[in-house]
Design a protein around this nucleic acid. Structure first.
Lengths: 231, 231
DNA sequence: TAAAACTGCGAACACTGATCGCAGTAAAGG
DNA sequence: CCTTTACTGCGATCAGTGTTCGCAGTTTTA
């Protein structure tokens, strides 16, 4: 039985006071990941950053997975849930999605996290609760509501990724990808691909990514929240 | 400069014939991942399965990443692209998405793959080209078309994950998650979450997941492909 | 004061991806 | 034909990984 970290108490009350805390571990790990990517978040690195040995971390964590859970929940806590709801589920969810996307942009490693089915700590739960509260006016069965949140999250991750690698010059791999894709498309075997890529840099003056995101999310939410219509 | 595997020739023409092929490596790795998960796909395991040492693999691959590229493209090749198009982008893309979801269900490790921005080998490119061809009747700028494919892919992965872990009894973690989520929701601090979860097992007789997928994708595609309407 | 529960951590284990260099083999060039 | 070139296979090895174990020390409870 491998319990989630959230189900275990952070501290007993018998022994000496612990030198660190889960929050501290999470903060160090997040900083490390922000600076050098998720791969840099190893038990040894985190321990070194804390000035201890690797084995000490296992007093706070059941393993590396728990550390990732902590990280995900820590950044979930950066999403402001104090804003008042307007009453329109589409607009309220969009505003939430915009704030969530900002977090993704601030912490690119979020997209690298092994996609566990659920990685919900206290902050993640609060986020989910907030989204469901925003969706309350819509007439939808329970599971469908969760589905909507999942779809929006997917859109957030998707657009954050696109927006990020469009801005900063991506890694080697990104450049190699583009080169390969360009020359392959130019070879003539993929006419539609070539056409789609050709329309990218030229043509329109590259729409504001924020506006594109807003329009897309609005459309998708409008379609998913359409109540009553069984088809 | 770290070139993609697709940009390097599989064989020179000077030395002795290679004992294996990229396709063989990919097949072995896929089989391994299907049986024991992506974590079981290590250079040593794959090499052992081939009856050689780990270092031999580096004659065929630049590294483990290349192996993952090969695997992804191999299963992308399982998607049947020979079906004729009906002419309605929404229905044609949905049919494609259904076939793609089947592949995800057959190879659960696809969801575990580190989400590189693009992991497109020949088969992946053919898939993309097919999707763009299906989308040809829609009046949409090029980048938007690529965005649509990305969103659909995200939906496919999303629903495949949900459908899979609903069928088979998930791992320990899944059970632990459910238990934790249930008791936390029951604690009363998350009323909307509790309501959404309560509606799940009882209430309606659990809609056919395939129908739910079809309805959702149709709605999303309908919203995204709505041409002309600038808002 | 004794027991229980806890912390910190050095040492070690079983892995991982990756590199290097050497022996052997096949084709190309003269 | 023989040399050169380019390739293959692979044992040995390196640095790094997550994780476990056991011991010494510390604080609280009984």
């Amino acid at each position: 039985m491998e319990r989630l970290i959230w189900t275990r108490p952070e501290r007993g009350n018998r022994g000496p006071a612990a030198g660190h805390s889960r929050a501290e571990l999470a903060a160090v790990a997040v900083t490390l990941a922000d600076r050098s990517g998720l791969a840099a978040v190893s038990m040894r690195q985190v321990a070194a950053e804390l000035g201890t040995g690797p084995s000490s971390l296992y007093r706070y964590l059941g393993g590396r997975n728990d550390l990732l859970d902590l990280m995900a929940d820590a950044v979930a806590g950066e999403i402001d849930l104090g804003v008042p709801l307007g009453g329109d589920p589409v607009e309220d969810l969009l505003a939430l999605a915009v704030r969530a996307k900002a977090v993704h942009l601030r912490h690119p490693w979020l997209a690298e996290l092994p996609p566990e089915p659920l990685r919900l700590g206290p902050h993640g739960l609060a986020y989910l609760e907030f989204a469901l509260r925003a969706m309350a006016p819509a007439r939808l069965p329970g599971p469908a509501r969760l589905e909507v949140v999942a779809v929006v999250d997917a859109l957030v991750a998707q657009f954050a990724r696109a927006q990020r690698q469009q801005g900063a010059a991506g890694a080697d791999r990104r450049a190699a990808q583009a080169a390969y894709l360009g020359e392959t498309a130019a070879a003539g075997a993929y006419p539609h691909l070539a056409a789609a890529l050709a329309g990218a840099p030229g043509g329109d003056p590259a729409e504001d990514p924020e506006a594109l995101f807003g329009r897309t999310v609005r459309r998708v939410l409008g379609a998913l929240l359409a109540a009553g219509t069984p088809d």
